[in-house]
């Protein structure tokens, strides 16, 4: 059986290429049928903000790309609730269906996967 990967995406979509690179890894894993889960953590939770207008910065629409994850078979999506809370986003609607997880659940997620990859 293929080894499972937990991808931890920790960068804001407008702050360099980290967020886009993480998504590329996820889409590649999906295209090749590898078991991969994504955890949005720290500034990475900002990728899930609704109503972004990246065109204003002449950037690609990462939140539109993220919506494609389930089509690529990447359906285990998690977001760190604490990181939403400290950014004033505790109750905000998210642009992507992701399970909100607490620290204890994140510990479990790390232990459940063979590899952890952080970007």
């Amino acid at each position: 059986m293929a080894k499972s990967v937990l991808l931890i995406s920790r960068q804001a979509p407008w702050a360099g290429i980290g967020a886009a690179e993480a998504l590329d890894i996820a889409l590649a894993a999906g295209a090749f049928d590898l078991p991969l889960s994504i955890l949005f953590m720290d500034d990475g939770v900002l990728q899930l903000l609704d109503q972004q207008q990246p065109q204003a910065l002449e950037q690609k629409d990462l939140s539109a790309n993220l919506q494609a994850l389930p089509m690529f078979g990447i359906e285990q999506l998690y977001v760190a609730q604490h990181c939403l809370t400290v950014r004033g986003l505790a109750d905000n609607p998210l642009a992507l269906t992701a399970e909100r997880v607490d620290d204890q659940r994140i510990q479990q997620l790390i232990r459940q996967h063979d590899y952890v990859m952080t970007l």
């Binding site: 889409l27 295209a31 790309n65 494609a68 089509m71 690529f72």
Partner: peptide, 18 residues
């Protein structure tokens, strides 16, 4: 329609699913 929605081209698996 996929491209308008997701701003990328699907790989085979995603195309089949869509």
């Amino acid at each position: 329609q996929f491209y308008t929605q997701f701003q990328l081209s699907p790989a085979n698996r995603a195309l089949v699913k869509y």
